[in-house]
């Protein structure tokens, strides 16, 4: 039985396309792994209870709150962080560009949740309604904008993404 217990855990994560093999302590959250072990600080800590969404990443194509995700449970996951939205040549993705152009953010601390959720929304819905945007962003708090500019930015992102696809 004891041989089933590991003191540290070996995880293989592909983060923004790059493979990382890491030996981590069992208790580590994905958020801490990204920030502390990989020095990827684009993903933010806001509450550590899963309420604010500032720590959002995508795991195997689905958004998740990295502060309440135990890294050890992700043995072979593909992770995309906010840094991974930028294209390899440094070009901003249509979503990033739209949020910047439309003053979607003020302080930008909530950006990981807003952008990653928008990306997932637009994958399956190229023309989201107000209420679909509200559902998609419901897991994220923004304290600066009053959400008006965020809604506008999601709609602009949808248009930009369509333009790019066509």
């Amino acid at each position: 039985m004891e041989d089933m217990l590991e003191d540290t855990v070996l995880v293989n994560l592909r983060v923004n396309g790059k493979l990382h093999e890491l030996e981590i302590p069992a208790h580590k959250s994905l958020l801490d792994l990204l920030r502390e072990d990989l020095n990827m600080t684009g993903t933010h800590m806001g509450c550590m209870t899963g309420h604010c969404g500032a720590c959002t990443v995508s795991i195997d194509g689905r958004v998740a709150k990295s502060c309440i995700t135990l890294a050890a449970t992700l043995s072979r996951a593909k992770i995309t962080t906010i840094e991974g939205l930028t294209e390899e040549d440094g070009t901003l993705s249509p979503i990033q560009q739209a949020f910047w152009d439309e003053a979607g953010f003020q302080c930008g601390y909530c950006a990981p949740g807003m952008l990653m959720c928008t990306a997932e929304l637009l994958e399956s819905n190229s023309d989201p309604s107000d209420s679909e945007i509200e559902t998609a962003l419901a897991g994220n708090l923004c304290r600066c904008t009053g959400y008006q500019s965020l809604k506008r930015a999601v709609k602009a992102a949808a248009v930009k993404a369509k333009e790019k696809a066509s």
Binding site: T41, G42, T43, T86, Q96, F99, G108, L115
Partner: peptide, 20 residues
């Protein structure tokens, strides 16, 4: 209404906040 010059960093996840 011009977009903010400081707005590029946050959308890229490259703005440096204190905890970073």
């Amino acid at each position: 209404s011009v977009r903010t010059i400081e707005g590029r960093g946050p959308v890229m996840g490259k703005a440096t906040y204190t905890n970073d």
